[in-house]
Each structure stands twice: as C-alpha cells, then as structure tokens.
Nucleic acid binder design. Sequence first.
DNA 1: GCACGTCAGTAGACACTGTCTACCAATGGT
DNA 2: ACCATTGGTAGACAGTGTCTACTGACGTGC
Lengths: 192, 192
Amino acid sequence: MSERNAGLRTRLVDVGVELVTAEGVQALSLREIARRAGVSHGAPRRYFPTHLELLSAIARRGFEDLAARGAAALGDGTESSRRQVATLGRVYLDFALTHRGMHELMFRHDLLESNTLGLRDASLPVFGLLVDLVGRARPDVDARLVAGALLANLYGIAQLWTWGSLQLTTGTDDFTPLLDAALDAHLGREDR
Amino acid sequence: MSERNAGLRTRLVDVGVELVTAEGVQALSLREIARRAGVSHGAPRRYFPTHLELLSAIARRGFEDLAARGAAALGDGTESSRRQVATLGRVYLDFALTHRGMHELMFRHDLLESNTLGLRDASLPVFGLLVDLVGRARPDVDARLVAGALLANLYGIAQLWTWGSLQLTTGTDDFTPLLDAALDAHLGREDR
DNA sequence: GCACGTCAGTAGACACTGTCTACCAATGGT
DNA sequence: ACCATTGGTAGACAGTGTCTACTGACGTGC
C-alpha cells in the first residue's frame, strides 16, 4: 500500500476500479466509493463535481486498460492486418467477459459524461486503429463503414454473450465460433 | 380514455409505456408511475411485488410491439427469405431508433427479471423466426450461429447509432448503409 | 509574529428512491 | 349479521446524489 495517501483524486478512481471489477456497476455509488476511500461522502465533490464525472474517470481507466492489452497483443505488428483485427477482436471479447462490470460501465452512456474530454480521447484511437487495419485488409470497400459494422458486431456479441442469450442457441460455452463468424463475415474468409 | 379505470395492473403498464416512450428509462421510477396512475406509491406492490417486475411487464409490451411490427412488415411472406431478413432488420432498427427509451429498457438486463416467464416468451419467437429465415437463406452454414452473429450485429448497430458513435465515422445520418453492410456480410450479397 | 485567504475535507440537510408494515374501507359469501 | 379476503393508503426506514455551511491546516505577505 504505497499509495495509501496518493492524492484523493486518484485514490477514488482506484477504489472505483476495484469496486466495479469485484461487484459490478450497481455497487458504484458515490457514498460507497467515498466510504471505501476512507473519506466523508462530500469529499469526492472537490475533485468530481458530479457522480457521473467520477464514473467517467473510472470508465476511462477501462478504455486505457483495454487499449494497453490490445497494443500488447499486437506486438510489433508483423502479422497480416487480417490477423491483427482477429487478435484485437479476441482481446476485446476476452476483456469484456472477464471484466464484465467494467465493460458494462464503459458503454453505459447514461452513466458517463460523454463530453468528458478524456473519455473520447481514450476510446477514439482504438477505433481509429481498427479502421486502419480494416482498410488494409479490405482495400476494396469503405473501411469506415465496414469497421463500424464490425465494431458493432463485436460489441453486440459481447453483450448478448454476457447475458447468456447466445450460449443457448449456439450450444457451446466458447465464443470463438461467433467471433470467427463475425470476422469472416465482415473481412472475408481467407487465411486461418 | 375509455380505460380510465381498466384495472390498476394494466393501467400501470400503460403509464409505464407512455412514460418510457416520452421521457426515457430514468423516468420509470416506481413512485412516478404510481403518481401518474393516480394511486399511492404502495399500490403497485399488489400486482408487481418489486420494481423490476413492473419494468419487466413494460418491456414485455415492447417485445410484443416489435413482434407485431415485424409480422405486419413481413405480410404473407412471399418474398425471398433473404429479403425477409432485410425487412426484419430494418423494422428492428427503425423501432430501436424511434423508441429509444423502450429499446434501452428491453435490453437493460439489470432492470429486468429475466425469469419473468412472459419476457422470454415474448422475445424468443422473434429470434426463432430469424434462425429459420437465415437457415433458408443460407442452407450451407450453421443457421443458429449466423443468426446469432447477425442479431448481435443488429443490436450493436442500434446501440452505437443511438449513442452517435457511428454517425461521425460513416458520415451520414442514415443507417441504411450500415444495415446493408451487416446483411451483406452475414448473408452474402445477392439480390438487391 | 501574525493576520489573511485558499484549499481539503467534514457534517448535516434536502428531496427522492424502493421496500416493508400496519391499517382501512369496501365487497361478497355464508 | 358476521366474517374474511381484496385493493389500496399512509407512514416508516435505509439508502442515494446534491447542496451548503462550517472547520482546520497550510502557506504567503507584511
């Protein structure tokens, strides 16, 4: 515990990340976070004028974490762009399913202050990279359109899967077939 | 207003449907619904033991509404299965974007009592029909898998579009290109 | 050395939420 | 005429986010 008193601002976000990871979004009440940080319920207001801004700061950690995992998985980027998109998709789905609370928070737009500059800054480059890779993998189509459709597909799979709506119909408890189906659909089936 | 006193049970659901349509999910507090129905805040408890069960009943109306619109749009089903899936997709996206509050509620699993029998009963047949049509349109693949992936794609498009995350990147304010991209991707491009 | 203003956090109030419990008034059956 | 069940009221309770008044501590200027 070196950051026992590392500034209340970051400590609140730390507590929030732990809390949403361990207990989910509904546990992220302002007063509970303050309690676990060992301060009064009015203290967070000094750094986060509203509850939503604190939640946005916590979600921002999620996007940064996801981006870091993506970058780590891509490595030096020597693989084909097609395979790079595949690994990005797998990293995203893995993240969404192992950090369900955080993933839910990251896309609960009613809980986030979307004009929080940091949020867009942390989430946009991921999408930019995806557009770039898709454009390289399929030079024949509108990359932004296909990337958008693919992103929507991945997000939808993540959501329906966490709700269990797809295990019943697909039969397995492995989302790989779904992921491959989406990648094949949007990028075409080639090397595998 | 013939149903001025049509039984509190259905009146509460009516009020909820109006409310979520007009003001969104966050307006659906138990006490506000009771207020607008002209009863005390404890009255709903007689018919809906918990808030979630009332919300589930409201969401059920959404699924029934959506299913009715789908059936009406399909007509007698003389078109090709490929085109039938296309119309279903368009009906769904239209519904999601013109009834944003209701659509959000329908997929807010943290607000719904999933073991509410009526909910699964109202939402499953829609998916069953989709699997059936996909199987007819693409007999060469696992229909349940492709239908699941397509459904996830449509849901993701609906969500990202309502958040405005896709208008920026695709340029237009018409979701048709995205819908067509998803359909072409999962069902193959043929008649158009 | 001392007043002064700023900063960080406390404590309490307010309106609102969902749930629970005690009560009450009507209604219909025997 | 009595009684029990039904359908709804009213108040309490713990919890929430926000707002405001207040309290110390700290550094700076004089």
